[in-house]
Design a protein around this nucleic acid. Structure first.
Length: 567
RNA sequence: UGAGGUGUGGCCAAGCGGUAAGGCACCGGGUUUUGGUCUCGGUAUUCCCAGGUUCGAAUCCUGGCACCUCAGCCA
């Protein structure tokens, strides 16, 4: 890894660079990636992972993986496993620094006691509804809770009893005593601890009170001696609270919170809640459905870690809200796979071609280059015979202008094989569908070359009709048919925009024989079509199943499309 | 109408007072046994708007406008 060229520096690197120059934090750089284990990681997280681990690498520091597991009702061990797998797959290593906020529960509890002792926190016995009413609104200040002035002793006793399970959920809450009239609502005596009589996936029933994000995150950062705590823009309003907690308490250090814009991608969604909904409602096959923007979905789709890292590099890091076009992601995987994917021929919608002057009982072995971009990948043998399959769309009875594939009288090249000329075809009288095409071949063009210098405009991929393997091919498209599925202008919800054609399954496609040996996860370019990956769950040698990662650029399709639009 | 942010081509994004990088997308030429790749060229007289400072402003100042975030005992 790491062959990505050093991307242009961003504002965060500038800040850290300055800090190092000023010997802040003794010149150390320690970052962290702090996911909550309540869902699978997605491409937006990849941006954060690349940023945090990338910064650590660039400045010779380290990056921790820390699970922000303070809400047992939403979290699960399954997510802890998947997150570690995904970060590792992306190519990053947290070394010894795998941490859990839950490991700090005791320390956090002591800090809370300290805050109570100094009169900066109190137990509030208002119910959730009343707390909201007392909070005021965006434009009106809030009012002090009637419990705001309980004595330190009373607060201590109450809090200890909260911890001991004396009370039930929602009866009390520990609050910071800050400023009920602050313009920043986060400072209007935010809740620090709540009672939750739920077992935690790691601490079991050891606790019945759980700390809130604002209390936990800054202290966890400080405990781990994080120097730069990087998060997304929506936490900007929480920064004053982050700083308040660290200022009021006696902590190891005071990390600097820096916010950047989260990633949005067109034609998909990034909300974990909505992705979970897609999974739960069975709209997709799971978190790792190849249409999902999750790391596991992209992996199954055939994306490489390198391509995702390159993408994160290209999109940059800034503070303005942005929506990156999905085409930018596709460009990255095409560039990567063009260089490394083995070529193969596969016919998705077969149309039989009979080469009339080719001997009936002859089978030839022909050489096919594995990757024209990389001679070191060598070549393979492919089988040719009198009857072959070509792509249905590569033949037209009445072609439009500039169609240089097969049609009556036209000569084309069969890739790696021969020049053939169409002499006729058969059609189903009822459907009007072409059922077979007849050609003659020129024996002097073996390999696809003509000694007489005769040029041919079209080159088709093909597979011998008596030498092939069959397998299912899954053609994926955008999960959503509109660029911004979140748009609720017309009262529609995101599921209304699900693309009904996001998955098209081709049963028993005609595949070059060698493809029978594809191992799960193997990636190929099917000539003239796109990049495909043998499914890591469903593909087995001998009966392969391929997922289309991305199509090749198709300027012919573009011409046809714009032609239709201009009609 | 409170507080905090952001506005540079279709989409990202550099730029930090010296005369608009780069990528994606798009358009056109060339090469090509993938209508792929590669390659060459084109695409912002202008940086949300209006004033001002300056020899000189996307960069500094003033005033507007637009958009985003915040009223969970979620993170």
């Amino acid at each position: 890894m790491g062959n990505e060229s050093e991307s242009l520096s961003n504002f965060i690197e500038d800040i850290i660079g300055n800090d190092i120059r000023n010997n802040k934090n003794g010149g150390n750089v320690v970052t962290r990636f702090p996911p909550e284990p309540n869902g699978y990681l997605h491409i937006g997280h990849a941006k954060s992972i690349c940023l945090n681990f990338g910064l650590a690498k660039k400045f010779n520091g380290r990056c921790h993986l820390r699970f922000d597991d303070t809400n047992p009702v939403k979290e699960d061990i399954e997510y802890i496993h998947s997150i570690q797998e995904d970060v590792t797959w992306l190519g990053f290593d947290w070394g010894e620094h795998l941490h859990y906020a839950s490991d700090y529960f005791e320390k956090l509890y002591q800090y809370a006691l300290e805050l109570i002792k100094s009169g900066k926190a109190y137990v509030c016995s208002l119910n959730a509804d009343d707390i909201r009413k007392y909070r005021g609104t965006l434009t009106e200040p809030g009012r002090d809770s009637p419990y705001r002035n309980r004595s330190v002793e009373e607060n201590q006793e109450l809090f200890v009893n909260m911890k001991n399970g004396t009370f039930s959920d929602g009866e009390h809450v520990l609050r910071a005593k800050i400023d009920m009239s602050s313009g920043n609502l986060n400072l209007r005596d935010p809740a620090l601890y709540r009672i939750r009589k739920t077992s935690h996936h790691r601490t079991g029933d050891a606790w019945c009170i759980y700390p809130m994000y604002d209390f936990t995150h800054c202290l966890s950062d400080s405990i781990e001696e994080i120097t730069h705590s990087i998060c997304t823009l929506e936490f900007e309003n929480n920064r004053p609270l982050y700083d308040w907690v660290l200022n009021e308490l006696n902590t190891p250090c005071h990390p600097q919170q820096i916010e950047f814009a989260r990633l949005s991608l067109t034609h998909t969604i990034m909300s974990k809640r909505k992705l979970l909904q897609l999974v739960q409602e069975g709209r997709v096959s799971g978190w790792d459905d190849p249409r999902m923007p999750t790391i596991s979905g992209l992996r199954r789709r055939g994306y490489t870690p390198e391509s995702i890292r390159d993408f994160c590099d290209r999109i940059g890091v800034a503070r303005s809200d942005s929506v990156v076009e999905h085409a930018a992601l596709e460009s990255c995987i095409r560039e990567d796979l063009n260089k490394r994917a083995m070529r193969a021929m596969a016919v998705l919608n077969p149309l039989k071609v009979i080469i009339e002057n080719y001997p009936r009982d002859l089978t030839e072995e022909l050489d096919a280059v594995n990757n024209p971009e990389d001679p070191e990948m060598g070549s393979r043998k492919i089988l040719f015979s009198r009857e072959i399959f070509i792509e249905e769309e590569d033949f037209m009875e009445n072609p439009p202008k500039k169609f240089f594939r097969l049609f009556p009288g036209q000569e084309v090249r069969l890739k790696h094989a021969y020049y053939v000329t169409c002499t006729g075809f058969r059609k189903d009288e009822k459907t009007g569908k072409v059922t077979e095409v007849h050609c003659t071949y020129d024996p002097a063009t073996k390999g696809g070359w003509s000694q007489d210098g005769r040029k041919v405009k079209g080159t088709l991929h093909w597979v011998s009709a008596s030498h092939f393997t069959s397998g299912d091919v899954r053609l994926y498209d955008h999960l959503f048919s509109v660029p911004n599925p979140e748009g609720d202008s017309s009262g529609k919800v995101f599921t209304d925009f699900i693309n009904p054609d996001s998955l098209m399954v081709i049963k028993d496609a005609v595949l070059e024989k060698g493809l029978a040996g594809a191992a799960p996860g193997d990636r190929y370019q099917f000539e003239r079509q796109g990049y495909f990956c043998a499914d890591i769950k469903d593909s087995v040698p001998g009966k392969p199943v391929f997922n289309r990662t991305v199509q090749l650029r198709d300027s012919w399709a573009k011409i046809m499309k714009s032609g239709k639009e201009n009609e």
